[in-house]
Amino acid sequence: MIGIAAIFLLIGYMEWAYLRRERKSKRTVRIVIGLDVMLIICSEAVYFTRNADVTAGMILNALFTPIQRLLFVGT
């Protein structure tokens, strides 16, 4: 859990330094940091549900399976 957050924080810091060096707009910096925060939350959520009976991956599988059944014949 800490490892995941640490990786994203490190990446966020490096990107922030890069954006500052390249003198990018504040909007760009806000978007990049915002995405970093969002990805930390998503990744931690996925991490915490990894041992659950139904993980996020299996939920998505459940979303796509009916469509595949429609596309396939005889399954």
Binding site: G12, L35, L39, G57
Partner: peptide
């Protein structure tokens, strides 16, 4: 797109390990 690349890649790899419990899944 440079600024998004590293964090999206990190997300892909974190998801790859924890979204799918086992090889059977």
């Amino acid at each position: 797109s440079k600024s998004f690349s590293s964090m999206l890649t990190a997300a892909v790899f974190v998801f790859s390990i924890y979204l799918f419990p086992t090889a059977a899944h």
